[in-house]
Protein backbone atom coordinates (compact mmCIF):
# COMPACT_ATOMS: atom_id res chain seq x y z
CA UNK A 1 0.00 0.00 0.00
CA UNK A 2 1.19 3.49 -0.82
CA UNK A 3 0.22 6.55 1.21
CA UNK A 4 -0.01 9.99 -0.32
CA UNK A 5 1.61 12.69 1.83
CA UNK A 6 0.17 16.08 1.07
CA UNK A 7 2.58 19.03 1.10
CA UNK A 8 0.88 22.30 2.16
CA UNK A 9 0.60 25.15 -0.35
CA UNK A 10 3.06 27.19 1.66
CA UNK A 11 5.87 25.09 3.10
CA UNK A 12 8.04 26.44 5.89
CA UNK A 13 9.31 25.25 9.27
CA UNK A 14 5.86 25.52 10.83
CA UNK A 15 3.78 24.00 8.04
CA UNK A 16 6.29 21.17 7.59
CA UNK A 17 4.80 19.82 10.84
CA UNK A 18 1.65 19.04 8.83
CA UNK A 19 3.76 16.76 6.66
CA UNK A 20 5.21 15.07 9.73
CA UNK A 21 1.73 14.68 11.24
CA UNK A 22 0.82 12.58 8.20
CA UNK A 23 4.00 10.52 8.45
CA UNK A 24 3.83 9.87 12.19
CA UNK A 25 1.33 6.94 12.09
CA UNK A 26 3.17 5.19 9.25
CA UNK A 27 5.86 2.55 9.74
CA UNK A 28 9.26 3.60 8.30
CA UNK A 29 9.06 1.05 5.50
CA UNK A 30 5.59 2.10 4.32
CA UNK A 31 5.72 3.24 0.72
CA UNK A 32 4.85 6.95 0.42
CA UNK A 33 4.45 9.51 -2.32
CA UNK A 34 5.10 13.10 -1.33
CA UNK A 35 2.64 15.26 -3.22
CA UNK A 36 3.81 18.84 -3.79
CA UNK A 37 1.64 19.48 -6.85
CA UNK A 38 -0.29 22.29 -5.18
CA UNK A 39 2.65 23.79 -3.32
CA UNK A 40 3.20 27.35 -4.47
CA UNK A 41 5.98 28.41 -2.12
CA UNK A 42 8.65 26.75 0.01
CA UNK A 43 11.24 28.24 2.33
CA UNK A 44 14.83 26.91 2.38
CA UNK A 45 13.79 24.95 5.48
CA UNK A 46 10.85 23.42 3.61
CA UNK A 47 12.98 22.32 0.67
CA UNK A 48 15.87 20.92 2.71
CA UNK A 49 13.43 19.21 5.06
CA UNK A 50 11.74 17.50 2.10
CA UNK A 51 15.12 16.07 1.08
CA UNK A 52 15.74 14.98 4.65
CA UNK A 53 12.34 13.32 4.76
CA UNK A 54 13.31 11.12 1.82
CA UNK A 55 16.57 10.18 3.57
CA UNK A 56 14.61 9.09 6.62
CA UNK A 57 12.50 6.50 4.77
CA UNK A 58 13.47 2.87 4.38
CA UNK A 59 12.00 2.77 0.86
CA UNK A 60 12.76 5.48 -1.67
CA UNK A 61 9.59 7.61 -1.67
CA UNK A 62 7.77 8.91 -4.71
CA UNK A 63 7.48 12.63 -5.43
CA UNK A 64 4.98 14.73 -7.35
CA UNK A 65 6.67 18.05 -8.14
CA UNK A 66 4.79 21.32 -7.98
CA UNK A 67 2.59 22.08 -10.95
CA UNK A 68 2.98 25.82 -10.49
CA UNK A 69 5.35 27.20 -13.11
CA UNK A 70 7.07 29.94 -11.13
CA UNK A 71 7.47 27.75 -8.08
CA UNK A 72 8.96 24.91 -10.09
CA UNK A 73 11.31 27.33 -11.78
CA UNK A 74 12.47 28.62 -8.40
CA UNK A 75 12.93 25.12 -7.00
CA UNK A 76 15.07 24.30 -10.02
CA UNK A 77 17.21 27.41 -9.47
CA UNK A 78 17.62 26.42 -5.82
CA UNK A 79 18.95 23.02 -7.02
CA UNK A 80 16.11 21.24 -5.26
CA UNK A 81 15.30 18.95 -8.18
CA UNK A 82 18.95 18.11 -8.77
CA UNK A 83 19.18 16.61 -5.28
CA UNK A 84 15.57 15.43 -5.03
CA UNK A 85 16.07 13.21 -8.07
CA UNK A 86 18.71 11.33 -6.09
CA UNK A 87 16.47 10.58 -3.12
CA UNK A 88 12.96 10.51 -4.62
CA UNK A 89 11.34 8.58 -7.41
CA UNK A 90 9.78 11.28 -9.57
CA UNK A 91 6.23 11.10 -10.88
CA UNK A 92 5.71 13.84 -13.39
CA UNK A 93 8.10 16.30 -14.92
CA UNK A 94 10.38 18.51 -12.85
CA UNK A 95 11.28 21.95 -14.13
CA UNK A 96 14.70 22.46 -15.60
CA UNK A 97 16.94 25.29 -14.45
CA UNK A 98 16.30 28.37 -16.60
CA UNK A 99 19.39 30.05 -18.01
CA UNK A 100 21.16 32.55 -15.79
CA UNK A 101 18.57 34.64 -14.01
CA UNK A 102 18.89 37.08 -11.10
CA UNK A 103 17.89 35.25 -7.97
CA UNK A 104 17.51 35.75 -4.25
CA UNK A 105 18.95 32.32 -3.66
CA UNK A 106 22.05 33.14 -1.66
CA UNK A 107 23.19 29.54 -1.51
CA UNK A 108 21.54 26.81 -3.53
CA UNK A 109 20.69 23.61 -1.68
CA UNK A 110 24.09 22.08 -1.00
CA UNK A 111 24.91 18.71 0.51
CA UNK A 112 27.12 18.73 3.61
CA UNK A 113 28.96 15.49 4.14
CA UNK A 114 32.50 16.42 5.11
CA UNK A 115 34.37 19.47 6.38
CA UNK A 116 35.56 20.35 2.86
CA UNK A 117 31.89 20.97 1.99
CA UNK A 118 31.70 23.58 4.75
CA UNK A 119 34.79 25.30 3.34
CA UNK A 120 33.30 25.36 -0.13
CA UNK A 121 30.03 26.81 1.16
CA UNK A 122 31.85 29.54 3.06
CA UNK A 123 34.14 30.41 0.16
CA UNK A 124 31.21 30.56 -2.28
CA UNK A 125 28.80 32.58 -0.25
CA UNK A 126 30.93 35.46 0.97
CA UNK A 127 30.73 37.89 -1.93
CA UNK A 128 27.01 37.51 -2.43
CA UNK A 129 26.39 37.58 1.32
CA UNK A 130 28.12 40.94 1.51
CA UNK A 131 25.89 42.33 -1.26
CA UNK A 132 22.70 41.07 0.32
CA UNK A 133 23.40 41.71 3.99
CA UNK A 134 24.60 45.27 3.50
CA UNK A 135 22.76 46.16 0.27
CA UNK A 136 19.34 44.65 0.95
CA UNK A 137 19.14 44.05 4.69
CA UNK A 138 20.95 47.25 5.74
CA UNK A 139 23.26 45.41 8.09
CA UNK A 140 26.75 46.67 8.82
CA UNK A 141 29.58 45.32 6.63
CA UNK A 142 31.01 43.52 9.67
CA UNK A 143 27.90 41.32 9.72
CA UNK A 144 29.14 39.37 6.70
CA UNK A 145 31.97 37.62 8.50
CA UNK A 146 29.79 36.88 11.51
CA UNK A 147 27.09 35.54 9.20
CA UNK A 148 29.69 33.31 7.58
CA UNK A 149 30.84 32.15 10.99
CA UNK A 150 27.28 31.25 12.02
CA UNK A 151 26.74 29.40 8.75
CA UNK A 152 29.96 27.47 9.20
CA UNK A 153 29.10 26.41 12.74
CA UNK A 154 25.57 25.39 11.74
CA UNK A 155 26.90 23.21 8.92
CA UNK A 156 29.58 21.65 11.11
CA UNK A 157 26.87 20.47 13.42
CA UNK A 158 25.93 17.93 10.73
CA UNK A 159 29.47 16.62 10.37
CA UNK A 160 30.19 16.44 14.07
CA UNK A 161 26.90 15.03 15.32
CA UNK A 162 24.55 13.73 12.64
CA UNK A 163 26.40 10.60 11.63
CA UNK A 164 25.24 11.12 8.04
CA UNK A 165 25.12 13.88 5.44
CA UNK A 166 22.66 16.75 5.43
CA UNK A 167 21.69 19.84 3.46
CA UNK A 168 22.10 23.59 3.73
CA UNK A 169 20.37 26.39 1.84
CA UNK A 170 20.31 30.17 2.22
CA UNK A 171 17.79 32.53 0.71
CA UNK A 172 16.43 36.05 1.07
CA UNK A 173 12.78 36.92 0.66
CA UNK A 174 10.14 39.34 1.82
CA UNK A 175 8.29 37.99 4.83
CA UNK A 176 4.69 39.03 4.34
CA UNK A 177 3.25 37.12 7.30
CA UNK A 178 5.59 38.76 9.78
CA UNK A 179 7.69 41.90 9.86
CA UNK A 180 5.28 43.81 7.56
CA UNK A 181 6.90 42.47 4.44
CA UNK A 182 10.45 43.27 5.50
CA UNK A 183 13.19 41.25 3.90
CA UNK A 184 14.83 38.39 5.75
CA UNK A 185 17.78 36.15 5.10
CA UNK A 186 17.17 32.57 6.14
CA UNK A 187 19.70 29.79 6.67
CA UNK A 188 18.29 26.26 6.84
CA UNK A 189 20.42 23.26 7.81
CA UNK A 190 18.68 19.89 7.96
CA UNK A 191 19.85 16.33 8.45
CA UNK A 192 18.25 12.96 9.14
CA UNK A 193 21.00 11.77 11.48
CA UNK A 194 20.97 10.65 15.07
CA UNK A 195 19.62 13.91 16.55
CA UNK A 196 20.71 15.75 19.68
CA UNK A 197 19.41 13.30 22.25
CA UNK A 198 21.23 10.29 20.84
CA UNK A 199 24.35 12.34 20.13
CA UNK A 200 24.57 13.48 23.75
CA UNK A 201 23.73 9.99 25.02
CA UNK A 202 26.87 8.73 23.27
CA UNK A 203 29.03 10.77 25.64
CA UNK A 204 30.45 8.68 28.50
CA UNK A 205 30.61 11.85 30.61
CA UNK A 206 26.91 12.60 30.24
CA UNK A 207 25.31 13.80 33.42
CA UNK A 208 22.46 11.51 34.39
CA UNK A 209 19.24 13.32 35.10
CA UNK A 210 15.82 12.40 36.39
CA UNK A 211 14.21 13.60 33.18
CA UNK A 212 15.75 13.13 29.79
CA UNK A 213 14.08 13.71 26.45
CA UNK A 214 14.52 15.51 23.13
CA UNK A 215 13.64 18.94 24.54
CA UNK A 216 16.14 18.67 27.39
CA UNK A 217 18.82 17.41 25.00
CA UNK A 218 18.13 20.39 22.73
CA UNK A 219 18.38 22.83 25.62
CA UNK A 220 21.62 21.24 26.80
CA UNK A 221 23.24 21.49 23.38
CA UNK A 222 21.80 24.75 22.05
CA UNK A 223 21.44 26.83 25.21
CA UNK A 224 24.02 25.34 27.59
CA UNK A 225 26.82 24.45 25.17
CA UNK A 226 26.92 20.78 26.16
CA UNK A 227 28.69 18.53 23.65
CA UNK A 228 29.19 14.80 23.37
CA UNK A 229 32.95 15.43 23.22
CA UNK A 230 34.84 15.63 26.52
CA UNK A 231 37.08 18.45 25.25
CA UNK A 232 36.23 21.68 27.12
CA UNK A 233 36.62 23.65 23.90
CA UNK A 234 33.64 21.91 22.34
CA UNK A 235 30.09 23.21 22.32
CA UNK A 236 30.89 26.84 21.53
CA UNK A 237 29.30 26.91 18.09
CA UNK A 238 25.73 27.41 19.23
CA UNK A 239 26.79 30.15 21.65
CA UNK A 240 28.35 31.95 18.71
CA UNK A 241 25.28 31.49 16.52
CA UNK A 242 23.04 32.73 19.34
CA UNK A 243 25.17 35.82 19.84
CA UNK A 244 25.11 36.63 16.11
CA UNK A 245 21.35 36.08 15.93
CA UNK A 246 20.71 38.14 19.08
CA UNK A 247 22.84 41.03 17.84
CA UNK A 248 20.81 41.35 14.63
CA UNK A 249 17.38 40.79 16.24
CA UNK A 250 17.12 37.42 14.54
CA UNK A 251 15.74 34.03 15.46
CA UNK A 252 17.36 30.62 15.88
CA UNK A 253 15.08 27.58 15.99
CA UNK A 254 16.20 23.98 16.23
CA UNK A 255 14.04 20.88 15.94
CA UNK A 256 15.19 17.40 16.84
CA UNK A 257 13.22 14.23 17.49
CA UNK A 258 9.92 15.27 19.03
CA UNK A 259 10.94 18.74 20.26
CA UNK A 260 11.69 22.21 18.96
CA UNK A 261 13.21 25.17 20.74
CA UNK A 262 13.68 28.81 19.83
CA UNK A 263 16.87 30.14 21.42
CA UNK A 264 15.38 33.57 22.09
CA UNK A 265 12.01 34.68 20.80
CA UNK A 266 12.32 38.06 19.05
CA UNK A 267 9.69 40.78 19.52
CA UNK A 268 8.62 40.56 15.89
CA UNK A 269 7.60 36.92 16.38
CA UNK A 270 5.93 37.14 19.77
CA UNK A 271 3.45 34.33 19.10
CA UNK A 272 6.38 31.96 18.60
CA UNK A 273 6.83 29.24 21.26
CA UNK A 274 10.17 28.98 23.05
CA UNK A 275 9.86 25.24 23.61
CA UNK A 276 7.59 22.65 22.02
CA UNK A 277 7.42 19.01 23.04
CA UNK A 278 5.42 16.05 21.81
CA UNK A 279 5.79 16.92 18.14
CA UNK A 280 5.57 14.14 15.58
CA UNK A 281 8.91 12.29 15.60
CA UNK A 282 11.44 13.09 12.90
CA UNK A 283 15.05 11.91 12.89
CA UNK A 284 18.09 14.17 12.93
CA UNK A 285 18.20 17.90 13.50
CA UNK A 286 16.65 20.77 11.58
CA UNK A 287 17.96 24.25 12.22
CA UNK A 288 16.81 27.61 10.95
CA UNK A 289 18.39 31.04 11.38
CA UNK A 290 16.33 34.09 10.38
CA UNK A 291 17.87 37.57 10.22
CA UNK A 292 15.50 40.45 9.39
CA UNK A 293 16.17 43.57 7.41
CA UNK A 294 17.23 46.42 9.67
CA UNK A 295 14.97 49.45 9.66
CA UNK A 296 16.73 52.74 10.43
Amino acid sequence: MTTLIDVPPSLDDKSFEQVLDQLAPLPPDEKIIVDARRTRWASPYGLTALLTLAQSRADRPGFYPTEIENTGSYWARANFYKHAEEVYEFHGKAHRTPPHRESDVLLEITPIVQSGDVHNVVERIQKKAQEILTGKLNLEPSSTMRFTMALSEACQNIIEHAGCGGWVAVQTYRWQQRLNGRKVVVIAVCDAGVGFRQSLESSPARRLRDRWNDAIALEEAVLNGVSRFPDVGRGQGFAGIRRFVGHWDGKLSVRSGTARIVASVPDWDSDETAREEGLPPFPGAQLQITIPERIA
Binding site: T148, S152, E153, G233
Partner: peptide, 15 residues
Protein backbone atom coordinates in the same frame (compact mmCIF):
# COMPACT_ATOMS: atom_id res chain seq x y z
CA UNK B 1 42.41 35.57 6.92
CA UNK B 2 38.75 35.89 5.86
CA UNK B 3 36.32 34.35 8.31
CA UNK B 4 37.37 32.63 11.52
CA UNK B 5 34.83 30.38 13.20
CA UNK B 6 34.77 29.19 16.81
CA UNK B 7 35.97 25.71 15.99
CA UNK B 8 39.04 27.02 14.20
CA UNK B 9 39.71 29.65 16.88
CA UNK B 10 39.60 26.89 19.47
CA UNK B 11 41.88 24.57 17.50
CA UNK B 12 44.43 27.22 16.57
CA UNK B 13 44.52 29.92 19.25
CA UNK B 14 43.34 28.12 22.38
CA UNK B 15 45.09 24.81 21.79
Amino acid sequence: VGALDFSCADEIVAK
